[in-house]
């Protein structure tokens, strides 16, 4: 539960903190569309550099954004690997036979055990894992010992286009995630919903109530940490009655899950009832117009952000049309 940065506001002072949330939402939306319009690897690298420049301008620590990438790291690796393996266009880069044989397999298993043992002590768990994978592929490809029993062998081919596309896709994902992280890192959830509400207001004409929608979103966002907190407390209360989630058999664990869920629900209902009472006693009436404590205002920063967005989007569009044109 700790260290989740995606969707987490981190208080700070920087350029993007003082940009109007509406501008930020629209800008991120268009920058993302713009990124998807790019279809050349050099353009994407350029866009990535621009994104990093944005980070520098906003004084957002690169490490924080990278930490936010952790949950989707597996997704990135999967897209990368599948692009490389499945794309069969362009010139051949690597062509070799993978020989799966008895000694090779035994050696790889040995390597795996060594990796598991090292993983306990090393911080560079992930790098070691990559080294392990690359090492075993190398082993399969190049080492054949006479007298070894061969199970099977297959062709391992990597094409130029495959490498290009895999890098392209990963970079594109990286840009999009960085952009959305900039938005959520620098915008308070309340500002975000206020911005959304204000952007969705025209939809009122077709019967969509943006006020209620924004209220629902902001209350749910507000209560995520509270619910985590409560769950933690319940877990501790049950653990002190001998229901520790990290010990015990599966059968016991099922019962323990129930002992967590029921108080969770009851507390959630109690909380919402209390909140409704508290809002009611302060004269909150759904749908009635209200004044705001913080009124959204545009400043020169919004103009700058909008200009950048329009420029980026137009260039992306022009590049796309151009490419289609010749």
């Amino acid at each position: 539960m700790k260290g989740i940065v995606i969707g987490q506001y981190v208080p700070g002072k920087g350029f993007f903190y003082r940009v109007d949330p509406r501008t930020k939402i629209v800008a991120v939306l268009f920058l993302m569309i713009g990124t998807f319009l790019l279809n050349d690897i050099y353009q994407v690298i350029g866009a990535l550099l621009l994104t990093f420049i944005l980070l520098v301008i906003g004084k957002i620590s690169f490490i924080k954004v990278m930490k936010g990438l952790k949950p989707i790291l597996i997704l990135l690796i999967f897209t990368f690997v599948f692009q490389i393996l499945l794309n069969k266009e362009g010139a051949l880069v690597l062509d070799s036979n993978l020989n799966i044989s008895l000694i090779n397999i035994a050696f790889v298993i040995g390597l795996f055990i060594v990796w598991r043992l090292l993983a306990k002590f090393k911080k560079f768990n992930f790098l070691l894992f990559i080294a392990f994978i690359v090492g075993s592929i190398f082993l399969f490809a190049n080492v054949t010992i006479s007298g070894d029993y061969l199970f099977t062998s297959f062709n391992f081919r990597i094409y130029e286009k495959g490498i290009e596309m895999s890098i392209f896709v990963v970079l594109r994902l990286l840009i999009i995630i960085t952009l959305s992280t900039i938005l959520t890192l620098t915008t308070k959830p309340t500002d975000l919903t206020q911005g959304l509400e204000s952007l969705l207001r025209p939809l009122k004409k077709i019967g969509f109530n943006s006020d209620d929608f924004a209220l629902i979103i902001s209350i749910s966002l507000r209560y995520i940490p509270t619910i985590f907190d409560e769950a933690n407390k319940i877990m501790q209360a049950q653990a002190s009655r001998g229901a520790d989630f990290s010990e015990g058999k599966l059968k016991d664990k099922l019962k323990q899950v129930i002992s967590l869920l029921i108080p969770m629900f009851i507390i959630a209902f109690m909380r919402s009832e209390e909140l409704a009472d508290a809002m009611g006693s302060r004269n909150f009436i759904p749908g009635k117009p209200r004044t705001r404590l913080h009124i959204l205002e545009y400043s020169y920063r919004d103009v700058l952000v909008s200009m950048f967005t329009v420029a980026f989007f137009t260039i992306a569009l022009l590049l796309r049309i151009n490419v289609l044109g010749y």
Binding site: A237, G242, I267
Partner: peptide
Amino acid sequence: YNDIRQNVGLVFQFPEYQLF
């Protein structure tokens, strides 16, 4: 750790957190 909790019993301040 469960054995420790059998030896040392802790009653929480708010009963709602444990009744189910």
